[in-house]
Amino acid sequence: MAKKSPTINGGSMSDISFLLLTFFLLTSSINTDLGIARKLPPPLPPDAPKPEIHDRNVFKVAVNFRDELQVQGKLADIADLRDMAKEFLANPNNNPKMSEKKMEDIAGLGPVAVSKGVVSLRNDRGTSYEMYVRVQNELTAAFHELRDELSQERFGIRFNDLTKDADIEAIQKAIPLTISEAEPTAVGTTK
C-alpha cells in the first residue's frame, strides 16, 4: 500500500445515465394502440328521407348469430370476401350486376371512374365481436388494396407510402371508404 489508488473519474457516469434516460423517455411513448379506425354516421332525425341507392350499387354483407357469412344473398367464406368486394367495387368487366361507375375529375389524378358502390354490412346482435372485426378487416383490406393499386398505377408507390397530402386526398376521393352499417337484427340475443 505504498501508492494510493487513483480515483475513477465519475464525470462520464452522468453521460451514460443521460443516455439511458433519453432512451427511456423516447421508447415510453412508442407503444401505441392499434386498431381499425371507423367513423360512425351522425345521428339522423327520425323524419330524414332514406337515401336513394340503386340496388346494383349495394354490396350486401350479412353475418348471423352463428357467425355465418352471407354475401349478396349467398353463403360465403370469409377468405373470399375481400376478392368479392374488390371485384364488385372495381367492376373491371362492367358487369351490369355490379356497381356503377361515374367519371369524375379529381385534382391531381384527372378523370377517374369512381365507383358508386356501397358496402352494406348487417350483423346480428348475437354475432361475435371476433367475427365482426374479421369481416370489417377484410372489407377494409379490399378498399386498401384498391387504393394501393390505383396509387401504384398513378404514382408508382403504395398508398401508405404516399407523403403528399394532395396525393393522399386524391386517392381517397377516387376510392372512398363506403361501408354502411345497418341496424342489427335481434335473432340470437339469448346467448
Binding site: G35, I36, A37, K39, P41, S128, Y132, Q136, T189, K191
Partner: peptide, 28 residues
C-alpha cells in the same frame, strides 16, 4: 374481448352516436 357479442357493442355505438362521438377505433 373477442368473445363479446355484437349486441352490447352495437348499444355502445348507438350511445356514441347520440353524443356525437363519431370517431371510433376497434382495438385489435
Amino acid at each position: 374481448d373477442k368473445s363479446v357479442k355484437m349486441g352490447i357493442v352495437t348499444d355502445v355505438k348507438q350511445e356514441l352516436r347520440k353524443v356525437n362521438a363519431l370517431k371510433i377505433n376497434y382495438s385489435t
